[in-house]
Simulated assay, not measured.
Amino acid sequence: MRRESVSSSRIKSIGYDEKNKVLEIEFFSLGIYQYIGVSLKTYQTFLTVKSKGRYFDGVINNKYLCRKTG
């Protein structure tokens, strides 16, 4: 999956597979994780918010099935 670099102290890049609704996040210190069932709107909002870490904590973390991929 192709990821886009983002400006964040915790998150290095974010990618999205629209067909399968999978959000992929590369963290600087934790590796790469995929979140299953994430809507396109959630992904698009994630890219535009000022604080990626705060958005992740409030909207994504512990809300979706997650798997570590790297």
Rank of each mutant, 00 (worst) to 15 (best):
2 R>H: 08
2 R>S: 07
3 R>S: 12
3 R>C: 13
3 R>M: 15
4 E>M: 14
4 E>S: 11
4 E>G: 03
4 E>D: 05
5 S>Y: 13
5 S>H: 12
5 S>F: 14
6 V>P: 01
6 V>T: 01
9 S>P: 06
9 S>A: 07
9 S>H: 13
9 S>W: 10
9 S>G: 05
10 R>E: 12
10 R>A: 07
10 R>Y: 14
10 R>K: 13
11 I>N: 06
11 I>M: 07
11 I>V: 10
11 I>G: 06
12 K>S: 13
12 K>M: 12
14 I>E: 03
15 G>V: 06
16 Y>A: 00
17 D>A: 05
17 D>L: 06
17 D>S: 04
18 E>P: 11
18 E>G: 11
18 E>D: 15
18 E>W: 08
21 K>T: 07
21 K>R: 14
21 K>M: 11
21 K>A: 12
21 K>S: 15
21 K>H: 04
22 V>I: 15
22 V>K: 03
22 V>P: 00
23 L>G: 09
23 L>M: 05
24 E>G: 08
24 E>T: 15
24 E>K: 10
25 I>P: 00
26 E>N: 11
27 F>T: 03
27 F>W: 06
27 F>Q: 03
29 S>W: 00
29 S>D: 11
31 G>F: 00
32 I>D: 06
33 Y>E: 09
33 Y>V: 10
33 Y>H: 13
33 Y>S: 10
34 Q>I: 14
34 Q>H: 09
34 Q>S: 13
34 Q>G: 04
35 Y>N: 01
35 Y>R: 08
35 Y>S: 03
35 Y>M: 06
36 I>Q: 02
36 I>E: 06
36 I>M: 04
37 G>D: 04
38 V>W: 04
38 V>S: 03
39 S>H: 12
39 S>K: 13
39 S>I: 12
40 L>V: 09
40 L>I: 08
40 L>W: 11
40 L>P: 01
40 L>H: 11
41 K>R: 12
41 K>Y: 09
43 Y>F: 13
44 Q>F: 02
44 Q>D: 08
44 Q>I: 05
45 T>H: 14
45 T>F: 08
46 F>N: 08
46 F>Q: 10
47 L>M: 14
47 L>Y: 12
47 L>T: 10
